[in-house]
């Protein structure tokens, strides 16, 4: 099969089969990412218009089996400790599956808020690793829970501000180099908090636009290789800044499509590599932002279907490319 088009039926069956890989060692070695993987798979399916391809009840039961009763958050897998990364995924799945009644909102909000540090950043769990990624997880989750009102917004924005670099981008902590994934989390968190005035749009837009390489793909930092997952990190940030036209959409679309596995389905980091669900969702998400025909609109701020976010009244002011006709 040619990779000049998005092979939706193949990707759907690839995602459906992910849970059947129990005789594959890699499957077990990635259990610390299981709940995230379920969220990636579900979101990819939803953007391809096939959310029904995985059983809803089974998924909700799995999410609930990851609940860490001691901490009051989700772990990545039954028996694993609660962590912000898994907690956000768990909440996102429950929102997308319209099953929020299963969640103890007070407890999980308390868990999230307990992880904010005096500097304003968030730790991922009680053991204290800090990173702007966790700050985004907290802001996104609290927003979905309707509990942003409990957050010290000034302190939170203050930390993001202190991570802004001379290139207009943001790093993982104060003084850390800009990286497209960190740019996404900081810009998206600012969008949720209504504080995009903290972004130097011209400089950051320039930096982001220069992430596109001659083969059409995007890298995450200067002088690095292209990778499909940056299609999402860079594009989501560009769409929040309303600067998606600053890159060549056609060339990027072709690059993402060329990283598909035309036999087994799924998308890889680059053409000819092994596929995984992480690059599959971020490839599909990128294509949605680029207006690829037949896909469902993705909300780049929350990385969830736009419709779901609109229904909650949370839509921010971003701009993707218009959806193209077939």
């Amino acid at each position: 099969m040619s990779t000049s088009e998005l092979l939706i039926p193949l990707h759907v069956s690839y995602i459906q089969k992910l849970g059947e890989n129990k005789d594959d060692l890699t499957y077990h070695l990635t259990s610390h990412l299981r709940l995230n993987a379920v969220y990636w798979g579900l979101t990819a399916l939803a953007i391809m218009g096939r959310q029904d391809a995985l059983d809803r009840n089974e998924m909700i039961e799995f999410v609930m089996s990851c609940w860490d009763e001691e901490a009051g958050g989700f772990g990545a897998h039954p028996g694993h400790d609660a962590h912000l990364l898994a907690t956000l995924s768990g909440i996102q799945i429950l929102v997308m599956q319209d099953a929020m009644e299963r969640l103890d909102v007070d407890r999980v909000a308390k868990f999230i808020l307990s992880l904010q540090q005096p500097s304003g950043v968030f730790a991922g769990d009680a053991y204290g690793e800090i990173d702007t990624r966790f700050l985004y997880c907290a802001v996104n989750a609290l927003s979905l829970l309707g509990r942003l009102g409990d957050l010290d917004v000034k302190k939170t924005v203050g930390y993001i501000k202190s991570c802004r670099n001379f290139d207009g981008g943001f790093g993982a902590s104060i003084g850390a180099e800009s990286h497209a994934a960190q740019v996404f989390v900081c810009v998206a968190a600012l969008a949720i908090l209504g504080r995009l005035d903290e972004v130097d749009v011209d400089t950051l837009g320039w930096w982001l636009a220069e992430r596109q390489l001659p083969n059409g793909g995007l890298n995450g930092r200067p002088e690095k290789l292209e990778d499909v997952c940056y299609s999402f990190w860079v594009l989501s940030a560009l769409s929040i800044l309303k600067k998606v036209p600053w890159i060549d959409a056609e060339k990027l679309t072709a690059f993402i499509l060329s990283a598909q596995d035309p036999e087994g389905g799924g998308i890889a980091d680059r053409p000819g590599d092994m596929v995984d669900v992480f690059h599959t969702i971020f490839g599909v998400a990128g294509l949605s932002i680029l207006g690829y025909p037949g896909l469902v609109d993705l909300d780049p701020v929350y990385c969830m279907p736009a419709e779901v976010i609109e229904a909650k009244g949370l839509r921010k002011d971003w701009q993707a490319l218009p959806r193209r006709e077939k």
């Binding site: 990778d227 036999e263 890889a268 980091d269 680059r270 000819g272 590599d273 092994m274 596929v275 995984d276």
Partner: peptide
């Protein structure tokens, strides 16, 4: 997964 070549066994 990053940079792992796809092989079809």
């Amino acid at each position: 997964m990053h940079g792992v070549k796809r092989v079809k066994p």
